[in-house]
Design a protein around this nucleic acid. Structure first.
Lengths: 226, 226
DNA sequence: AGAGCTTTTTAACCTTATTTAACTTTGGCG
DNA sequence: CGCCAAAGTTAAATAAGGTTAAAAAGCTCT
């Protein structure tokens, strides 16, 4: 289930969007001011944020900055009125992924959401990604898992699997998805191979007991951290 | 600085695109009709053109033809509405490098722009390239790898392989691709020959430990730098 | 043409990565 | 409880890659 954080102070529009996105199969968490939105962001994991620029308490741009500070990789789409066009440059500077000007059609919004999700799911190799997992930092590009003491050079498969787990940290990484992504084909043997790699990763990560790879029986794995 | 010529008559979309591309570090010259666009093209040098199909004065297709007549090598991406999909065939016939259908996400656009720039930079007429790799500079044309201390004259194969790695630095250079490009045929023996050259290059590059040639098991090699 | 050189390929042997297999443990469910 | 399927673990077998040296193929120059 794809989770969307919506920050929109116009209650009518907010409800309309929530209903529409729900109908399209997205889970929406709707907040009417910036403060509530950032609190919600801190407490749950989202796949995408829709932020109005004009918001009470904390405006959309500041909100986006805070979100970016926490998670580099969650896409942000701004909702803006025509009269606020000047905000666009500022919005893009803080790392907006897209912009949509009110009034917009639901169809257009859904299209942009899907385009972004497609891209971030398929093309996630943002060059300088780095994940912080307790005492570890993991760089998928160089396939290195570093802790205060040691630095571990991961093999390709180890790194690919850990990368997927990180991208889905604190939520479930489905077996099928991982198998199709990393092993291309999801047959019995590849599944067993994946199990072996889970064991290897657990061995590396057991240095920090706050990090665990949890099995979700019949579904997949969850990387628990923070 | 990469310079983009944008021909788009929808002022809102034009401003949006300009802002976004500026934020991404591109310089954009935005024109709202075909005539102004071709004039601008004649007066300055651009690295890439984004052309709306429907334009006042001179339409996008004719514009592309004129651009192609002047410069064979400048990539062109067409922006088009869904209803204009038939123009695609015509567009590709005049030599479009890519096509993007409105409404599109900014993410998608940037991805296509970067993909094309990467591609056209890989097939460059400009042989005066120079790559900086940590303490090294590498000139493919003269086949020289220079560090502060030494200057290494590379053999042809060494240089070709390092060149391909450089063109794909920080992303994967696929074995097959490298073999077909440098060795023409990708059989077992050529693959082993390539391995030997990887060893040679690693030997040269080990003077700077921040530069590494990483093997991606079963897929190829990644040159890591910066 | 062939001596003396460089470059490239082939070969042999070694190391590491990944898969397969066998056996053990755990979780869900009648 | 007891069964079965799913997952955990470990070790082995296989495949891919690393390294080195020698053989073969190309040059160059007389």
């Amino acid at each position: 289930m794809i989770k969307i954080l919506l920050a929109e102070d116009d209650v009518n529009l907010g409800i309309l969007l929530t209903d529409y996105l729900n109908a399209k199969g997205y889970s929406v968490s709707h907040h009417t001011d910036g403060k509530k939105a950032i609190d919600a962001f801190s407490e749950a994991s989202f796949d995408l944020c829709l932020l109005d620029i004009m918001l009470p308490e904390i405006d959309g741009i500041s909100l986006a900055k805070k979100i970016r500070a926490k998670r580099e990789d969650i896409p942000v789409i701004f909702l803006t009125a025509k009269s606020q066009e000047d905000d666009k440059i500022e919005g893009f500077r803080v790392g907006a992924d897209d912009y949509i000007t009110k009034p917009f059609s639901m169809e257009e919004l859904i299209y942009r959401i899907e385009a972004i999700l497609r891209r971030t799911r398929n093309h996630p190799l943002e060059d300088s990604e780095e994940y912080k997992l307790g005492i570890f930092t993991f760089q998928p590009l160089s396939q290195v898992l570093r802790s205060d003491n040691k630095s571990h050079k991961l093999t390709t498969k180890e790194s690919e699997l850990l990368h997927l787990l990180c991208k889905n940290r604190n939520e479930i990484l489905e077996r099928n998805y991982a198998l199709k992504t990393i092993w291309v084909d999801d047959n019995y043997f590849n599944a067993r191979s994946m199990d072996v790699y889970i064991t290897k990763l657990r061995k590396y990560l057991k240095e920090d007991p706050s990090i665990t790879i949890l099995n979700v029986h019949g579904k997949g794995y969850k990387l628990l951290c923070d």
